[in-house]
Amino acid sequence: MSKTVLVLVETVDDYLPLLERAGYRLIRAPSPQLRADAIARHAGEIDAVLTRGPLGLTAGEIATLVNLRIICVIGAGYEQVDLAAAAARGITVTNGAGANAAAVADHALALLLALLRDIPRADASTRRGEWQRVISPSVSGKRLGILGLGAVGLAIAKRASLGFDMPVSYHSRTPRNDAPYTWYDSPLHLADAVDILVVATPGGAGTQHLVDAQVLDALGAEGYLVNIARASVVDTQALAAALAQGRIAGAALDVFDDEPGVSDALKALGNTVLTPHVAGQSPEAARDTVSLVLRNLQAFFAGEPVLTPVHE
């Protein structure tokens, strides 16, 4: 008997046939209304849910899905999945740790280069027929700090260190013995020691506003912030104020508090580069993400350990 997967995500459609060819029945519900309708109509049929961190799955939805056995989250973050409700029902939760790390790291470096070298404004002025040869900072040799050294953080560190001769430091809850980078015991001390701070840590209550006004002040007037993780990790109001007042030099952001909405304060600033939460999106990343979901589903329904479990 085939298993039924409720698909709430909207970014991996081209690779969902991988699941269908493996025998899974898919119910696609990539909008709030379709989601509500699908859960109301098919509550007793759904064995698995495919979601992503910001879309999550609520306690109420988990209670309604009476035959739900596994929740697969694409991407590393799972901040809106009610893990307590899942655990209370014995429902397994997996994530996509590492599946899109290369794409996210590539985008982080692209944002970093665009920000420091002022690429968007240079492009726009050249298209207007202007010839504004503004002197921009070099990237090579800058001191890079990474907040969170998981799969994405490690991929960023490798690119920065080997490609741009950047000394790399990081903050995580505990030092990593397998990483040849300098550990700092707090975001504040890390920010004080670097020129560029990249946010690469998961979202959720445990990382809420780790980057606050104090951290931004420690980063300083010649410092830059890049966030390819979750907007919740950075205090957006404090960031907008620091940018407007010149307390930091610039910020490049791929994530925002109220997506798809973007703060008008951030959009109005000339020292920001903004992209619409696309860091983890590439054909390769989508393929690898769905492949990992498939392997987790196959392992789970075969009674074997899943590859990337998430625990409360």
Rank of each mutant, 00 (worst) to 15 (best):
3 K>S: 14
10 E>F: 07
11 T>V: 13
13 D>A: 13
18 L>M: 13
18 L>W: 07
21 R>P: 06
22 A>M: 15
26 L>E: 04
28 R>L: 14
32 P>V: 15
33 Q>E: 15
35 R>H: 13
35 R>W: 08
37 D>A: 15
43 A>I: 15
51 T>R: 03
51 T>A: 10
53 G>T: 09
56 G>E: 14
56 G>K: 13
57 L>H: 05
60 G>K: 08
67 N>S: 11
69 R>E: 06
71 I>N: 01
76 A>N: 08
80 Q>H: 08
81 V>Q: 02
84 A>M: 07
90 G>M: 08
93 V>Y: 04
95 N>F: 06
97 A>Y: 04
98 G>C: 15
104 V>L: 05
110 A>M: 00
110 A>K: 00
112 L>I: 00
115 L>M: 11
120 P>I: 08
123 D>C: 08
124 A>R: 14
130 E>R: 13
131 W>M: 11
134 V>N: 03
136 S>M: 02
137 P>T: 02
137 P>E: 02
145 G>M: 02
147 L>S: 05
150 G>Y: 12
151 A>H: 10
154 L>K: 11
162 L>T: 15
171 H>F: 11
172 S>Y: 05
175 P>A: 11
178 D>F: 12
179 A>S: 15
179 A>W: 13
180 P>M: 13
184 Y>H: 14
186 S>Q: 12
193 A>S: 14
193 A>Q: 12
194 V>M: 06
194 V>T: 08
197 L>K: 06
203 G>Q: 07
208 Q>F: 07
212 D>I: 08
212 D>G: 12
213 A>F: 09
215 V>G: 05
216 L>D: 01
217 D>M: 06
222 E>D: 11
224 Y>V: 02
227 N>F: 04
232 S>M: 09
241 A>H: 10
242 A>C: 09
244 A>N: 10
246 G>D: 05
246 G>K: 04
250 G>I: 00
251 A>C: 11
253 L>K: 01
255 V>H: 04
255 V>F: 10
257 D>W: 09
263 S>M: 03
268 A>L: 08
280 G>W: 01
285 A>F: 00
286 A>D: 05
288 D>W: 01
289 T>N: 02
290 V>E: 01
292 L>W: 00
294 L>S: 08
300 F>R: 01
302 A>T: 11
303 G>I: 13
